[in-house]
């Protein structure tokens, strides 16, 4: 709980979007699933060291676009992405980009906690092992412990690092997945509705953690819950029917939306 209080101490500055350098910028992105046009002509700039939230009704394409940022859509048959998504000025859809490299820089946390059927230690050690990040065993152990600490899970599991990750509670599993993602030192962490399978208390833990992680990472979170977007994010983007309707500072979005559709969604007319 020690780290948590330090996390609390970080100032909740919501006026930072303009001051942060842009980490990811998408230009005229179109995504198709065989026939279906899932994302239409989308452009957005996402700042570093902050939390950006994608909100919108289900089926609006927010998850699809999220998965385009670390090219997870490559694993889906018949999915095609046009346009460019730049990570630090490098278009990740360029021919010479290697997805394995890309994904070690852009981590991802999924809707349902998906720890591997291995021990807690092995779950976190997975990334460093495949990418050859640790020089030796102690090095690896340090990395695992550091990641678990950053994910706020270490105190709870330090006595049972060798028991299976699937034996943890839902919230712990999700934090394990976050620890697993940050073990490879990514720059960006994508979170696809990370709390939708969790109870309110576990959700609160994860939200605290996200807030804490934003000091070091560029975090993008897809969420169904507008309250969650309001609580954790600095920038909010509203998706509707495959288009990006509006994007802007979270406070402004929720108090003074520019677009009628955003307003209707936020006030609960549909969604």
């Amino acid at each position: 709980m020690n780290q948590m209080s330090t996390a609390r101490a970080t100032e909740k500055n919501t006026q930072m979007v303009g001051e942060r350098s842009t980490r990811i910028s998408a230009r005229k992105v179109n995504i198709y699933y065989s026939e279906k046009h899932a994302i239409k002509d989308l452009s957005i700039e996402i700042p570093d060291r902050s939390v950006s939230a994608f909100i919108g009704p289900s089926g609006c394409g927010k998850s699809t676009f999220l998965r385009a940022i670390n090219r997870m859509n490559d694993t889906i048959d018949g999915c095609r992405v046009d346009g460019e998504v730049r990570l630090d000025d490098k278009n990740i859809y360029d021919k010479d980009v290697d997805v394995v490299q890309l994904r070690s820089h852009v981590g991802m946390v999924f809707q349902k906690p998906n720890p591997f059927p291995k021990s807690i230690f092995e779950n976190v050690a997975y990334g460093p092992r495949i990418h050859g990040l640790a020089k030796n065993k102690t090095d690896l152990e340090e990395m695992v412990v550091a990641s678990l600490k950053k994910a706020g899970l270490f105190e709870e599991v330090k006595d049972r690092l060798n028991s299976p990750g699937t034996g943890l509670s839902g919230g712990q599993q999700q934090r394990l997945c976050i620890a697993r993602a940050i073990a490879v030192n990514p720059e960006v962490i994508l979170m696809d509705e990370p709390c939708s399978a969790l109870d309110p208390i576990a959700t609160a833990r994860i939200e605290e953690l996200i807030d804490e992680l934003r000091q070091n990472y560029c975090i993008i979170i897809v969420t169904h819950s507008m309250q969650q977007a309001a609580r954790v994010s600095q920038l909010t983007a509203f998706f509707h029917l495959g288009t990006l309707v509006e994007t802007g500072d979270t406070n402004t979005m929720f108090t003074n939306p520019q677009d009628k559709r955003t307003q209707d969604y936020i006030t609960g007319r549909f969604g």
């Binding site: 694993t75 394995v100 999924f110 720890p115 591997f116 059927p117 997975y126 495949i130 994508l190």
Partner: peptide, 26 residues
Amino acid sequence: PQSLRDGSYAMGATKSETVKRVVLPA
């Protein structure tokens, strides 16, 4: 489950690494 594969790919694992280290053990 596909979610295990996704978890592995998202870590930057190649297909064979995913098969060998995640799918086959499971």
